[in-house]
Amino acid sequence: MPRNQWKPFQSITVQWISLLLVCLVALPVANASEPKATDIVVRAKSKDAKFIGSSMGGAMVRIRDAESGEILAEGLTEGSTGNTDLIMQQPHRRHQSIAEGAAAFRTSLMLSEPVFVTVEVLAPYIKKQARVAAQTQVWLVPGKHLDGEGLVVEIPGLVVDVLSPQTHRYTQMADAPFPIRANVVMMCGCPISEGGLWDGSQMEVAALVKKDGRDFATIPLALEDVNTFGGELQPDGPGLYQLLVYAYDPRTGNTGVDQVSFIVR
């Protein structure tokens, strides 16, 4: 066949080869950019205690794109505090889950490429005076789930609520001495009791009292009942009293604070 008659066939062959190469190059790119569901589980665990769940209003979890700050998912942990024996008493082996049945926030993100995220946890969410913000960061890879035990974020601290005297209460010197009562629980709501798993007799709880803006007294509070510490305040005269109750566990460094002010006439 004369040479010039091969040109149409050569042209067609080149076109097909070019098209094939384009398809081969484009195919991996298309597959790589296809979004894949990526499941994520986040849990909030009270330091020296159990998981923070529905009984404490949950922990607010926010997952943000670390670069842009965009919120990719958010919500509250839901469920129980978990298995006390498994979490607090049994020895733990490597890769052993302790989160059986425990509260968690679950979500699924459609990701087309790996993303570096910041995971923020605010807990216990409904207890503003005790709420702690903790965060960590992690890479999420499309289709590579972060499930099972999930990402566990530790929340340090104690929840303290002053029960009496009440905020902005007006009272009379004739009613003195005034009882001081405070409720103290772990961040997961776990009970503090005499000689219990969370032993209140080993904790330091006290009221720091100011009168008219000046230091007045430090009053130790003793464990009176489950979660309840008490003492008495003997004022020396009328004035504006400010009372700050703190709880401190020297074994773990956990602390918590609440405060009120009241008026003595």
Rank of each mutant, 00 (worst) to 15 (best):
V61C: 08
K45M: 02
G58V: 12
S46M: 08
D65E: 00
A49H: 04
P35I: 04
I52E: 09
V25G: 08
P35V: 03
S54T: 15
I63C: 01
P28R: 08
M56G: 08
D65Q: 00
P35D: 00
M56A: 10
D48G: 05
V22H: 05
G53R: 11
S33Q: 15
I52L: 08
D39T: 13
V25S: 11
A32H: 14
D65Y: 01
A37S: 10
A32D: 14
R64S: 02
N31Y: 13
A30S: 06
I52S: 07
V29T: 06
R64N: 00
P28C: 05
G58T: 09
G53A: 09
V22Q: 07
A59N: 05
A30H: 07
T38P: 02
E34M: 15
L27K: 12
V22P: 03
I63E: 03
A44K: 01
A37T: 13
D48R: 04
N31Q: 11
E34W: 14
S33A: 11
L21N: 07
V41L: 02
K36W: 05
R43C: 00
S54E: 12
K47Y: 11
A49K: 03
D39N: 13
G53N: 09
E34T: 15
K45V: 00
V22C: 08
A37H: 06
A49Y: 02
K36L: 10
R62T: 15
R62Q: 09
D65S: 00
V25K: 07
A37Q: 12
M56R: 12
T38W: 02
D48W: 08
